[in-house]
Design a protein around this nucleic acid. Structure first.
Lengths: 161, 161
DNA sequence: TTACGTGCAAATAATTTGCAGTCCC
DNA sequence: GGGACTGCAAATTATTTGCACGTAA
């Protein structure tokens, strides 16, 4: 192995892979590849394609069907079953968050930070709401011409570890 | 402050009308009947039976399938399609509230006042949370041995009338 | 009477699964 | 090479719909 072993606060910068990652930090392809590897997921052709569709356009709210359509439009060969599979493993890895909107389809949010949502009845559009507002009991103003039809708060519980 | 009880007999020994009567005994049958009429809904045999199952046991959280099972256990003749139909018209009439829990099934809450929910991961159990707490930015303590896995806030919007 | 409701079975919609074949490490 | 991943099609689950028949007003 290499002889240069200097301790710093960023050990990753000292390995060959780390230097490579740093160089490629601006490249969405390579940053996605290492994100997947860090999560123990093989960066397969299909997962890379889905990951790029999901994560290289800012925060997005997508259904499985919608993501599948986007892949098809771009002539990326991926099956619907693999889209579902990919969304599940991405979610498990903490790269996506499922949003409970209604009883029909599941939405995936590429913004995994703490925040909430408006949903416009009829059109199935999600709009982010910063968490702080609601956590302080402040209900934000609806967009122009819209009014609040209802508020759903669901706190999911699990057995303490 | 317990409600007047009617002596229960073997439900199978009764006629359909008799079982319906047993179900109605001690229950606000007429208030349900007028509630339905006020909403422009015909108080049919099936809707009365479903309404009594829903509204005569305090606040409940039910799925269509669960309500159907309860009707079957009490030998109340009603089809699954009619259960779905009934839940929809009751919801439109403001007698029920749909709760967005996850992407699979729809829950119906007989408590239509402003409040929120815990859901216990794994078991599909809903627990009411008074609205005031959350509307003031106070997240209530989870039950013993449970911890918060996540919070979903969805504000549903509609076009201003 | 007659429009609204109901029951049945078939149709949808979203998602999952079984398994043979493929690809990454 | 071997286990992880993918694709296809069939299976499942939750819900809706079409239509003939029933029933409350």
């Amino acid at each position: 192995m290499t002889a240069q072993r200097v301790k710093t606060q960023n050990p990753q910068a000292l390995t060959a892979q780390g230097r490579l990652d740093a160089l490629m930090a601006g490249c969405p392809v390579h940053s996605l590849r290492s994100k997947l590897k860090q999560s123990g997921l093989r960066p397969t052709r299909q997962r890379m394609a889905l990951g790029l569709l999901l994560f290289s356009k800012g925060d997005r709210h997508l259904t499985a069907e919608k993501l599948f359509e986007e892949a098809q439009e771009l002539r990326v060969p991926v099956s619907l079953a693999t889209v579902y599979n990919g969304l599940h493993v991405f979610t498990q890895a903490g790269l996506l968050r499922e949003v409970a909107v209604d009883g029909s389809k599941v939405y995936y949010d590429t913004n995994v930070s703490n925040h909430h949502h408006f949903i416009i009845q009829g059109s199935n559009t999600l709009i982010d709401i910063p968490a702080l507002d609601i956590d302080r009991g402040i209900i934000p103003e609806p967009p122009e011409g819209m009014e609040i039809a209802g508020i759903d708060v669901v706190i999911r519980l699990r057995a303490k570890s």
